Amino acid sequence: MPSRPYRSELRAEQARTTRRALVRAAHELFVERGYAGTTIDAVAERARVSRKTVFTAVGGKAELLKVAWDWALVGDDEPVPMAERPEVAAMLTETDPARLVHAWTRFLVPITRRLAPLHPVMVSAARSDPEIAALNEISEQNLLGGATSFVSSLAKLGGLRASWTVERAAQVTTTLMDPMAFDRLVVRSGWTDEEFADWVEDVVLATFFAGPDTDVVLSSG
């Protein structure tokens, strides 16, 4: 009897290892060959499993891209939503608006670095694949949701200029969060991650941040 829980845990760990290998293989192939050029057989071959295992462990191509994107977003395969991550919790407790902006930019960069290689794959595939189009739309909504959360927190601390609405500032923020900007400046132009983070921070501070000499919008909540 005592061996049964052990065997169950062992099987679960083996399944998780297989799933990781498949998602890693799919991620690599999507970046190398694009969505259309990646096949289930190629994923199976790179992960050294059967074609059937791909479907049973993860799913079809759309599910592989979805999981690869989700894992790149949070940085691991732990079942913990981004909103419940310690870094996010720390930002939610920040009381100084300038420190919040600094912390947010440093939180943003590693996420954008992980998503940048998959982003063109997602955008290109969305043009012809309805499943990926729906996935891309969800991603865009999540992007806007994250931007709105950041700007709303900034506004509650008195850090949003009175001439800016949360909605408008969030629209600017989503542009800064777009992996395309990271790809253009860091991957293609050779900026360092720190230089990119400094640039994002400078844009926020210069555009809609309410510093000591600017009017602020006070939160009603």
Score class of each variant (00 low, 15 high):
P212D: 03
M122Q: 12
V200C: 00
M1W: 08
A162T: 11
E137H: 12
T192V: 05
D198E: 14
H102V: 09
E94V: 03
A12L: 10
A133K: 08
E32H: 11
V88P: 07
A90R: 07
R7K: 14
K156N: 07
A25V: 07
A206H: 10
T175Q: 11
T165I: 10
M180A: 15
R99W: 13
E94N: 00
T175W: 09
H102Q: 13
E195L: 10
A134S: 14
A42N: 02
E45Q: 15
V54I: 12
T18R: 15
I111K: 09
D77A: 12
G211M: 08
L22T: 07
Y35K: 12
V200F: 01
D70Y: 13
A90K: 00
V54R: 05
D178K: 11
A83Q: 00
A12I: 10
V187I: 11
A147S: 12
A26L: 01
L10G: 04
A98Q: 15
A42C: 00
G211N: 11
R16H: 05
R114T: 03
P79C: 00
G159A: 00
L92E: 15
G59F: 07
S153Q: 15
G159Y: 02
S139I: 11
G190K: 05
G146Q: 14
A21P: 06
I111C: 08
A116K: 09
S8H: 13
V187N: 14
V186R: 04
G159E: 11
R168E: 04
A26P: 12
R11L: 13
W69N: 01
G34S: 09
G60D: 07
Y6T: 09
A90N: 07
K156T: 10
D76M: 01
T165G: 03
A162Y: 02
T112A: 12
A57I: 13
